[in-house]
Amino acid sequence: MIGRAFGQIGAFTMAFFGRWGAAVFLLLRTLRSTLGRPFYLGNLFYQVEFIGIRSLPVVLLTSIFTGMVLALQIFSGFERFGAESMTGTVVGYSIVRELGPVLVGLMVAGRAGAAMAAELGTMRVTQQIDALYALSADPVRYLIVPRFWAGVIALPLLVVIGDFIGIWGGYVVSVGMLGANPVVYWDNTFDFMELWDVFSGLIKATAFGAIIAFVASFQGYTTSGGARGVGRATTSAVVSAATLILAANYLITYLVV
Rank of each mutant, 00 (worst) to 15 (best):
R141H: 06
R228E: 04
D163P: 10
A137I: 15
I161Q: 10
L246Y: 03
Y221A: 00
A114W: 04
Q8E: 12
I53K: 11
R29L: 05
T89M: 13
L41V: 13
L155E: 08
A213P: 08
E49R: 13
V230G: 02
I64Q: 03
V183S: 14
G36D: 11
V91M: 00
T234N: 06
T89L: 08
R147P: 06
A180M: 14
V24S: 07
D163E: 12
I245K: 02
T13M: 12
L70P: 06
G220A: 01
P139Y: 00
A233G: 12
G226Y: 01
G77W: 01
V59Y: 01
M68A: 15
R232H: 05
G36Y: 02
P101D: 03
F45G: 05
V173P: 14
T66N: 04
G176V: 04
A5T: 09
S55V: 12
V145A: 06
E79A: 15
F75M: 10
L27Q: 08
R111I: 07
R111K: 15
G209E: 08
A210C: 10
A22K: 14
V198N: 01
G225Q: 02
G151D: 07
R124G: 04
T189I: 09
N249T: 03
A115Q: 09
Y133N: 13
Y250D: 02
S55T: 10
V172E: 13
F45K: 13
G77D: 13
E84W: 02
I203M: 13
L195G: 12
L26Y: 04
A241Q: 04
D197Q: 10
P101W: 00
R124K: 15
T189D: 02
S94W: 01
L178Q: 14
F190D: 05
D197F: 01
F25V: 09
G176T: 03
T34Y: 15
F78R: 11
V125W: 01
G201V: 03
A134H: 05
L31I: 09
V256C: 01
R80M: 11
W149P: 05
G52M: 08
G105E: 07
P139I: 00
T66Q: 04
E98Y: 03
A242N: 13
R37D: 10
S76A: 11
A216L: 07
I165W: 07
F199S: 11
I165A: 14
G151P: 09
A112K: 09
V238K: 04
L158M: 05
A71Q: 08
F50G: 08
S200I: 05
L158Q: 02
L158R: 02
D138F: 04
G10K: 06
L103I: 07
V256G: 04
L35R: 14
G77S: 15
I165Q: 11
D138H: 07
G229D: 06
F208A: 07
T223Y: 04
F6D: 03
A15Q: 12
Y142C: 12
L202R: 07
T89S: 15
I212A: 00
S217K: 09
A247C: 10
A227Y: 03
